[in-house]
Design a protein around this nucleic acid. Structure first.
Lengths: 120, 120
DNA sequence: TACCTCTCTGGAGCTACTCCAGGTCAAGGC
DNA sequence: GCCTTGACCTGGAGTAGCTCCAGAGAGGTA
């Protein structure tokens, strides 16, 4: 499939996909005789994983490391597991950040409600 | 209090505080005769709110708008409420992103576990 | 007096995109 | 056969939101 379809399916923009390829986070994608990238379903699966890692704040350095390990094959499975488990931890921290921010917003909104009632 | 204390209490770095002041997200902070910024408790409260908004992904444009409304006084309370309620919505969306990413990670980790068992 | 620490400003550098100009190529319409 | 359209290509500039740094000044301590 072409880049537009890969983009739609993975959630990453075409520009971002090309950027990731240049950065080595995505393997060099095969090209047709027309010079256009042809994405395999495996490519798209990889892009989708990257989409979620990135969307939840994994820095590019980590993704590069992850991609490097992937290229090295099955003997790096443990390290890749550790990396993903580490990311799962940051997800937890992000969740507590959301909790705390919701509290802060609730307090602020309560104050505004009071102000509004006093205005009328 | 000086900037280092305001930084510690709000969570924002001194550099970020100065940057926010330049950007108009933070009101111009009072200076002592030595030229150093003196932060009031209200300043710190505002910085802390900004810290949480920023940490949970509110773009600077929105924070600038929020600060502008704040400067205009109590008659903008409704608009400020709307802005914060909007942010509360994005928090919800972020939470579902975290959920989905956790699922993706769990799937991936399950695959790695299987691979490891087959290796041994 | 010298040194240390904290602060100041302006400006460069960084991350992770995003957008754009200028060009190629294949397909469809006339 | 030619022209237009549309998706794609590359290289490079622009953006957001910091972060770091050099160079300078003020106040405190030995």
């Amino acid at each position: 499939m072409l880049i537009s379809e890969a983009s739609m399916k993975s959630g990453l923009s075409a520009d971002t996909i090309r950027f990731y390829e240049k950065s080595g986070i995505v393997p060099a994608i095969e090209r047709g005789s027309d010079g256009l990238r042809r994405f395999s379903p495996e490519n798209v699966e990889w892009l989708t994983l990257l989409y979620w890692l990135r969307k939840t704040g994994m820095p590019m350095k980590d993704m590069q490391r992850f991609a490097g390990l992937y290229r090295e094959g099955d003997r790096t499975v443990q390290e890749r597991k550790a990396l993903l488990l580490g990311h799962a931890e940051t997800l937890k921290r992000k969740r507590t950040d959301l909790d705390r921010c919701e509290e802060v917003l609730a307090e602020k909104l309560a104050i505004y409600d009071k102000l509004e009632r006093n205005q009328t």
